[in-house]
């Protein structure tokens, strides 16, 4: 099996250590376009799309395998094996923060540090734990995804990189960055928002940095603090950036925090 083609792996830069960027639910590796290039001078940067997103091989989408985050973590470990990675820096956004944690537990030594951007160990409230959503609200999101036509007409392969500043190409590419097969998007949403990885946090032995946005409705500060509190020895940086995607809205802040950590 060709892991690189399956996950649309892109490698850039030079450097002893590798830095692996994992995108979250919603879009694809383009999420890192304002952050990843900065690290090319000091790291070998690795970008990839989760199976089902971006330019990954959709034919490899197996609902059973990807019925839990563990399936995605297996892919991440395989990418590490194929590229012979050791002691790499992992940078995971949103749900990929947990995917990175699971991979670090499956393959000790693969990562020497974890940068978790907007992580949540569980999105749904559970007793005293406040994940930010009720089970009903998550169901509403799934329904909403079904009703939205982004991706309906979307058998076309998404995203050709590098034309954000060439809007004249926009007609053809409109909305393509976040275009996903609707069934896959729904399934990934379900897997993401019903996941519960609280018990895995304490097992993490890799040095970890949690980057938390202010006013993030997907992963609240409370949720980020919970993650930090339960990963032994981890650090928390609260960003001024608002929203859920500081890697896009405030790349400089994210880069600075990452540099200080690695």
């Amino acid at each position: 099996m060709n892991v690189s083609a399956r996950n649309n792996v892109r490698i850039n830069g030079s450097g002893e250590r590798a830095m692996v960027f994992a995108h979250g639910f919603g879009c694809d590796q383009n999420m890192w376009r304002f952050v990843e290039p900065v690290f090319r001078s000091t790291f070998r940067t690795v970008l990839f799309d989760h199976v089902g997103a971006g330019n990954s091989d959709l034919s490899k989408y197996d609902p059973v395998k990807y019925g839990s985050l563990s399936g995605y973590a297996d892919d991440l470990v395989e990418i590490g094996e194929e590229l012979d990675l050791e002691g790499a820096v992992f940078v995971g956004h949103s749900v990929s923060a947990m995917i990175g944690i699971l991979a670090s537990l499956k393959a000790p030594g693969l990562f020497s540090s974890l940068v978790l951007v907007g992580p949540s160990a569980r999105y749904i409230d559970d007793g005293d734990y406040k994940g930010g959503f009720s089970a009903k609200q998550v169901e509403e999101l799934l329904e909403f995804l079904e009703a939205n036509h982004m991706g309906w007409s979307a058998q076309m392969a998404p995203a050709i990189m590098g034309n954000a500043d060439r809007p004249e190409l926009g007609e053809e590419l409109t909305n393509s960055f976040c275009r996903t097969d609707p069934d896959i998007a729904k399934h990934f949403a379900r897997v993401t928002f019903t996941s519960d990885n609280r018990d895995d946090l304490a097992k993490v032995t890799t040095p970890t940095l949690v980057l938390q946005c202010s006013e993030d409705i997907i992963a609240s500060t409370e949720v980020g603090e919970y993650v930090q509190r339960h990963i032994p020895g981890s650090k928390l940086v609260i960003l001024n950036a608002t929203g859920h995607c500081p890697n896009l809205s405030a790349p400089d802040e994210v880069i600075a925090a990452m540099r200080a950590f690695v």
Partner: peptide
Amino acid sequence: MFYETHIAP
């Protein structure tokens, strides 16, 4: 949720 994960990016 949709806005934050799809539209804003």
